[in-house]
Design a protein around this nucleic acid. Structure first.
Lengths: 217, 217
DNA sequence: CCCTAATTGATTGTATACAAATTTATACCG
DNA sequence: CGGTATAAATTTGTATACAATCAATTAGGG
């Protein structure tokens, strides 16, 4: 997956996220091949990968088309993600090691620092740390296969696209939920951890809904 | 995806399900290309597709390896599936049309007939009808994108592999749960429908666990 | 004798050429 | 003028040839 294939994948994916291709439009292999500077073979591979991540839909003998996501679709994805990550949180509460709990504590502290410090790179730092926190939960759940499937889901078009631009206040609020979640995990209260995680994801969905779709479109 | 690519996919998938390739073993593109009667190009495409369905894992520059699933992994998958299909059942209870409810009724009736009739094709008929029933729930949930994602999940290696060989008694029992589920949907009781569906899937998981892994392996 | 390094062999990754299918354009008929 | 059928052009699908990477083996040095 490295070399030309990866190059094509990154290029097309970035352009899709940048909104260069309108929803429903068709992606020509030849054109992509030219603009990516690789041959059609790795372009085809990249398109299949993007289809797996629901960026595009491939119709046999017709090509790749940019997938359109409705508001309802996106909220459904948040709901699904809330269930999936809720499940891992419950398992993490049952199985997390002390080292993993300490790591989560450290990440939470760093997120607080980031929110307090502010600055232009605040959001990027938060996204990275937030990702690390959730990955640690995955790790602590002790279900590698399950975790891989959910990670793949989180990599999907919608989820990636909805990586919201949090304000400092939003970050503090989100991190408060992290603290509550960690507390539940420390107490080995799986059910509580699950509910808190679901709430955590669903409130993120609500925030997205309010921020990015204030009016009917 | 038709033609040579589909041919390679079906061939490799069947052989994987038939246990021809041991877990962890490496799949050579050249050998598959030869045995499938197509060139390496569609074989590579088929392997990527099988990687998406978690039949194999592809390591860059190293090839495709048959994935091994532990008992815990499989039970995790049932748990995940129970949540996913529970979600669609809840939505179906809120949105199902009369025509869809009637269709489910008809399918339930046909499953009862199949169980009563017995015969050698009983299990195949049940699997088909059972699939139709669950697909109707998906359809009735009114969330096409969500449904597509879940359908893809159900197509995965583990789920397909665990399509258990039900006895006539098991079929009757499973169909009883279908009836309870449909009753909840008719009453527009989403929460009840969700719980019944989750129970339905999890009991299937238990049955698999008991039937196929009676002893520690 | 063991460990390291280079070379050989084999396998995956990429590019290109060709085949098949679809879309578009055009000519013909009603 | 509209509709259908045919034909050309474009695009995807497949096969093959070549390049790059990785595994194994062998040669060399300690």
């Amino acid at each position: 997956m490295s070399g030309a294939s990866e190059k094509a994948y990154v290029s097309i994916r970035n352009r899709l996220l940048g909104g260069e291709f309108p929803a429903g439009s068709r992606l020509s292999e030849s054109e992509l091949s030219e603009s990516c500077g690789v041959s059609r073979t790795p372009v085809r591979e990249a398109l299949r990968r993007l289809a797996q991540e629901y960026f595009v839909r491939i119709e046999p003998n017709r090509g790749a088309f940019v997938i359109d996501w409705s508001r309802d679709d996106i909220m459904d994805m948040f709901e699904m993600r809330s269930m999936m990550e809720g499940l891992t949180a419950r398992k993490a509460a049952e199985r997390a090691s002390m080292a993993q709990i300490d790591l989560m504590k450290a990440i939470i502290k760093r997120i607080d620092d980031v929110a307090e410090g502010g600055g232009p790179e605040m959001r990027d730092s938060f996204l990275t740390l937030n990702r690390q926190f959730h990955d640690t939960i995955f790790e602590a759940s002790g279900s590698p296969k399950l975790t891989e499937i959910i990670s793949r889901f989180v990599e999907q078009a919608v989820i990636v696209r909805t990586a919201a631009q949090y304000s400092a206040y939003d970050i503090v609020r989100s991190n408060q939920q992290h603290k509550e979640l960690l507390s539940a995990i420390e107490k080995r209260n799986g059910m509580l951890a699950e509910i808190i995680m679901r709430s955590h994801i669903l409130t993120a969905g609500e925030r997205y809904h309010n921020n990015y779709m204030p009016n009917e479109a």
